[in-house]
Design a protein around this nucleic acid. Structure first.
Length: 786
DNA sequence: TGGACCCAAGGCCAT
DNA sequence: TGATGGCCTTGGGTCCAG
């Protein structure tokens, strides 16, 4: 029979010595299905030493396989490695568990130089070789496996083809959000001792559930929750920090209570998988914290902050309870209601966030070819690499092993020193996707790179400026093909969108998809310069940025010839005086340089200091656009950012220096009078490693250590919020964690001098305002006292 | 002995 | 666990005038 289904998750197993690929999905009749393919065999390649006869080598390897061996075939095949033809030996297995064992055996054979593709997981290879992408519709010839009813899904065996179906719609996915609360008087969160008092759940169908401990007993909480998961049978499970908190705690707690934690579709228990991800078989588990990274506007990525930014909850109905207060709220019968409400809101926020972000995750899975539950957990490099596997296989390129060493840094984009001051009527032009287009134009790719010692005629190759790397003009390289395909796909989607109504689900999905194509296109350059990339080749990255510098410098020269003044330029953009004829200029640049340059925006007025990568301007619609300044930085306290924003607004809109200065002084006055809340003074910084591993003394590290002393658990990746208190010693000595701080013990002078005045003067200094004109500076104060 | 100056570490942002 | 360019703060050191 034929089965039409949408791929939700992909896994693998070995049964009776046979490798099987497990494809979980939702069929076109809203049924949940598992399609098993046992016809695809794992394999790897052996590269012979030079001067070794590959046929002889293959024969000698064949001799090593014993009668009941899992080896199904040893053949000589033609492939390419970095564009060079190679004859290699392909060894096919029945059971992927044997691959590494046989690598050890074959290593000892004379004439074997290297092994390739031994570390490619079976299902990853399956998807790449067969060009199957998760989160898409497929049609398969299958046979139902009987006797497996009443599991909430049907099982099929693939007996024929499996081919894509052009369908943009999504199946009716069932999404479950969950969130747990722990009763831990010590605050140490120990699953051996501390019960799970509340599990809150919310579904995309609007159902909300709560499983609450009775008399502090949590065995039933877990059991009832598991019962509900089985009953609702979700396709997608979402949490917030669920990879590192909710799931690990529940798994450990269930072990302690001897409750089988059966959240997987097949009744098994979840396990820790690649990229530090908790994998739930048959369902896609997404930790939305992984997606919070994309929300760059939110600097401190708590569930509440992300939910508020995405407007998934009504703000005024919020209950907020500090984690340390949970035991108190639980113990007090009067307060417990609030705790239950708080817990319910967390689950509701989580399902709300998932509704906004799931289309993005699905699109990234489609474009990268990675399963939905891994794609947002995996780094950008792995997403690109996964996408490249498919194309590599299609053109017979072997996947290289990661380089063991080498590398080093190389020069990047060119940044022009800005002309400082205020400029009126400035147009900004951008080269659209500059690096990918350069890679296409000059055929820059790991398989077109010409080794320095190779003899070539100059008209056969493109030679990069400054660095001199050469790339064959023909045939089209691996990257060129991939990038052109990505661009073409994106155009196709954009064209399809023209027929759709905005705000509808199909439109939103297609918009997310075209964005995903753009993101992946632009990520190829970053990938090629990444030391962890299998296709890492420094000259590829180095040549791309060198051509980029050439292009932007030529553009700057052309601008001058057109009589336009260049105010600033950074990598792929130029800021020029906006006069009549700028359109002609951009057409000429596009034509002469063979790379499309487009007008991006126009500033009615824009301000530069002497610093690069910092400017602020008024756009034509009147909005203030701030780039690089403290206003947009998460490591400056709100009070300083607010002052700077007001100063910039006053200067750009009203050109009123006195008014701007007055505003700063009023804020300083407000701070002195204690009319400022602690929240406005908190400085947030990320702990990038455990506090004890820092070589230096720094305020956020010192604050983190104080937090630990008070029972907190800051770790690598935690955002530390701190304020600077009064007293003796360095700033670090006086950094106090936000939660332990007292507004009456704030070092007012520090905030005035180092934060408010510092941020304000960054702008005001260019208009001649001196430090001494800002009231309450320590120096002036001391002078007065004298 | 205190201030000027320099540098490395660290974090975040622009592209 | 994509890249480089760049700004800025902090702490710690040296040098030197007084």
């Amino acid at each position: 029979m034929r089965l039409e289904f949408w791929i939700l998750d992909v896994g693998q197993t070995v049964e009776d010595g046979v490798s099987k690929v497990l494809i979980w999905g939702v069929d076109s009749r809203d049924g949940r299905v598992l399609v098993v393919d046992d016809t695809f065999q794992p394999y790897f390649y052996i590269v012979p030493e030079e001067d070794v006869n590959v046929g002889v080598l293959a024969e000698s390897l064949k001799g090593l396989s014993i009668s009941d061996s899992p080896i199904l075939g040893v053949d000589v095949v033609k492939r390419k490695l970095f564009g060079k033809d190679r004859d290699v030996v392909r060894v096919v297995f029945r059971d992927f568990d044997y691959v590494l064992k046989y690598v050890k055996v074959f290593k000892k054979v004379d004439g074997v130089e290297d092994f390739l593709e031994v570390d490619i997981r079976h299902y990853v290879r399956y998807l790449a070789d067969k060009r199957i992408r998760p989160c898409g519709w497929y049609s398969a010839e299958v046979q139902e496996v009987e006797g497996l009813k009443n599991r909430g899904y049907s099982v099929y065996r693939l007996v024929g083809d499996l081919k894509p179906v052009e369908l943009m719609d999504l199946p009716g996915l069932r999404v479950l959000a969950f969130d747990i609360e722990i009763y831990s008087p010590s605050g140490a969160l120990n699953p051996e001792k501390d019960p799970v008092i509340i599990i809150s759940a919310a579904t995309n169908g609007g159902v909300e559930k709560q499983f609450v401990a009775k008399n502090g007993e949590d065995r039933d909480v877990l059991k009832e929750f598991l019962g509900y998961v089985t009953e609702f049978n979700p396709d997608v499970i979402v949490g917030y920090d669920s990879n590192f908190f909710d799931f690990p705690f529940l798994i450990d707690r269930a072990k302690k209570l001897r409750v089988k934690f059966t959240v997987c579709r097949d009744g098994s228990e979840p396990h820790l998988s690649v990229y530090g991800h908790v994998s739930v078989a048959g369902r896609a588990h997404l930790d939305l914290y992984d997606m919070a990274e994309m929300v760059v506007e939110v600097k401190v990525k708590t569930l509440k902050n992300i939910a508020d930014y995405l407007r998934v909850m009504a703000k005024n109905s919020r209950v907020l309870i500090d984690h340390a207060q949970i035991p108190k709220y639980w113990d007090d019968k009067g307060l417990r209601k609030q705790l239950l409400l708080y817990a319910a809101q967390d689950a509701k926020s989580t399902i709300g966030i998932s509704e906004k972000l799931l289309p993005t995750a699905i699109s990234m899975a489609q474009v990268s070819g990675m399963p939905l539950d891994q794609v947002m957990r995996a780094g950008v490099g792995f997403r690109v690499e996964n996408m490249l596997l498919t194309e590599g296989h299609a053109i017979g390129e072997l996947i290289p092993n990661k380089p063991a060493f080498g590398g080093g840094t190389y020069a990047g984009g060119y940044v022009l020193q800005p002309v400082s001051g205020v400029h009126d009527n400035i147009a900004v032009f951008d080269f659209a996707s500059m690096y990918p287009n350069l890679m296409i134009k000059y055929n820059i790719s790991p398989d077109t790179y010409v080794q320095p010692n190779e003899k070539v005629s100059e008209d056969e190759v493109n030679i990069a400026p400054e660095v001199g790397h050469k790339f064959w003009k023909e045939p089209p390289g691996f990257y060129k093909r991939v990038i052109e395909e990505l661009i073409a796909e994106r155009r196709k989607i954009q064209k399809g969108m023209e027929k759709l109504k905005p705000q509808t689900l199909p439109y939103i999905m297609m918009n997310e998809r075209q964005k995903a194509f753009k993101i992946m296109t632009n990520a190829v350059y970053g990938y090629c310069g990444w030391l962890g990339a299998k296709w890492y080749l420094k000259p590829v990255a180095e040549a791309t940025s060198a051509w980029g510098r050439e292009i932007i410098k030529e553009t700057i020269e052309m601008t001058k010839k057109h009589g336009l003044k260049v105010i600033y330029a950074d990598t792929d953009s130029v800021f020029v005086t906006n006069v009549e004829g700028v359109d002609k200029f951009s057409r000429e640049v596009t034509q002469k340089l063979g790379l499309e340059i487009k007008p991006d925006k126009v500033y009615k007025r824009v301000f530069f200091t002497e610093a690069k990568k910092k400017y602020a301007g008024l756009l034509e619609d009147g909005a203030l656009d701030v780039v690089g300044f403290e206003i947009v930085r998460g490591d400056w306290p709100e009070i300083a950012r607010e002052v700077q924003e007001n100063v910039l607004n006053i200067i750009l809109r009203e050109k009123d220096l006195e008014k701007a200065t007055k505003f700063v002084n009023e804020t300083i006055q407000r701070l002195r009078e204690g009319k400022v809340s602690l929240d406005e003074l908190v400085i947030w910084e990320t702990l990038t490693k455990p506090p004890e591993k820092y070589k230096i003394k720094a305020p956020h590290v010192s604050a983190a250590k104080k937090l630990m002393a008070a029972g907190g658990r800051p770790e690598a990746g935690s955002k530390i919020g701190y304020v600077i208190g009064k007293g003796e010693g360095s700033i670090s000595d006086r950094a106090v964690p936000y939660s332990l701080a007292d507004i009456s013990n704030i070092d007012i002078d520090y905030y005035i001098e180092r934060q408010i005045a510092s941020a304000a003067l960054r702008v005001l200094e260019y208009f001649g305002v001196k430090e001494s004109q800002l009231s309450g500076k320590k120096s002036t104060r001391q002078a007065k006292l004298k």
